[in-house]
Design a protein around this nucleic acid. Structure first.
Lengths: 236, 236
DNA sequence: GGCAACAAGATCGTATACAATAGATGATTG
DNA sequence: CAATCATCTATTGTATACGATCTTGTTGCC
């Protein structure tokens, strides 16, 4: 848990630091450097980022609102461990939101938007090629968020952002096959549809892509061993 | 602004108080006792509820995440004033989520669920009859949230809860005709469809209901005079 | 008379200190 | 030897204190 500091190095400006801490933690969760069930002690996190517990608490509350961490009263904050049921719900919500949003995005996408998407996909491929699986996963989620933003729907984008985050936890818990490459092509096809302004196709592709993602999970069994802290240390 | 204390009276238990404060404020906003643009000073709110600024800050941050209040750095927290654009986004998101959710609810609703819905509708009518418009509005929103819960979709229910809250602000800003009765019948029809387990009908009714709601707003003009604090006081 | 610079006041941002609770450790007893 | 209970430590919940920043009222100058 000691390689989380990512952004924490310089605290040159005195901007709202809680946001920074929350973002760092969110990123760490997205990249699977923090796994489900890990305890986030206020003192510990505070020391890592060089801030007071006040800031850490604010950050953890934010993450709690995004359902990324569970705060148990008088116990502490833990990275969330979505149940099978929650996992299904997350993907059902995505199925409701994302296809139609992809269609809107296709109707509005500008060449600049397409360029950004292609760049993110390229980064994702590069990360995968270099074995930085965590970053690849995060960028893969970023792609979905980009589409929502292209659709020019800030509210829906916010929801999708939360869902993508939670999906990252779901994947950490229920992922079946480790060769995650399959979905890259789905993203490529989607970008193509967006570039051509083909709304209905984009909607269909997104719907199928989400179904593929869901079917690549193993949601029939128990939480795939909810790792406790000692287990995390024991594996080392 | 001094009739907000609703729940604050007795602080007998020492449960997580930030949640209580947040809930009270949320309720006050739902009932239009706190209007868009009102300033929520930390000291003031803290004094009203008899808690420290620490608690108030946590509560305000929660509301900020729900987009119910805007926190401007070094300025303070204000009840949000959704722009025309945000107002549209809120209803577009609802249009994506609620109809399908209503369909699911129709397929799962138990007699007990229907009873709860009918009870809430009855309360809503009663509140309207007695001129307690604010509570009627809140209960009207509660109805939509109930449906999401009946659909057994906690995640989507959470989103709809946020959207309903924001809708309350939108209504405060852009409501055109004051005779709010029209929608009651829509709710009655919806309950009927749910009771009969008619999913497609429920979906259609919900879609139409949301369109009606949207069309009863005046979203063509500027923020319908974003009431400043002095205006709020001047009207009294 | 209007505008700009300055000072005073208020409010927020953060850190720290204290109180309360949960969990662990060890002793004690059946 | 196992189970239970008391104490003790570690961590969270809350309040308060201090420093930073913005707003506002005033003053002086143009």
């Amino acid at each position: 848990m000691n390689e989380v500091r990512t952004i924490a190095g310089k605290n040159g400006r005195r901007a709202p630091r809680a946001r920074e801490v929350a973002d760092s933690l969110t990123r760490a969760i997205h990249e699977h450097r923090l796994g489900p069930g890990m305890k986030l002690s206020e003192d510990e996190v505070g020391e890592i980022f060089g801030v007071s517990r006040t800031i850490v608490r604010a950050a953890l509350q934010q993450l709690s609102h995004d359902q990324l961490v569970m705060i148990e009263p008088h116990r502490g904050a833990f990275v969330a461990q979505p149940s099978v049921r929650e996992a299904r719900e997350v993907f059902e919500a995505r199925a409701l939101l994302e296809p139609r949003t992809a269609r809107s995005a296709a109707e509005r996408a500008t060449p600049a938007d397409i360029a950004i998407l292609r760049r993110h996909i390229a980064e994702e491929h590069a990360a995968l090629a270099e074995g930085r699986d965590g970053q690849a996963l995060r960028l893969s989620g970023q792609f979905h968020l980009d589409i929502a933003r292209i659709a020019d729907q800030a509210t829906i984008a916010e929801f999708i952002g939360q869902l993508v985050s939670r999906s990252s936890l779901v994947i950490a818990l229920y992922w079946r096959r480790r060769n995650a490459l399959c979905e890259s092509h789905a993203h490529d096809a989607l970008v193509k549809a967006l570039a051509e302004g083909d709304g209905p196709l984009a909607e269909d592709l997104m719907k199928g892509h989400l179904l593929d993602l869901l079917s690549s999970l193993d949601l029939r069994e128990a939480p795939a061993q909810p790792r406790s802290l000692k287990e995390a240390l024991g594996g080392e």
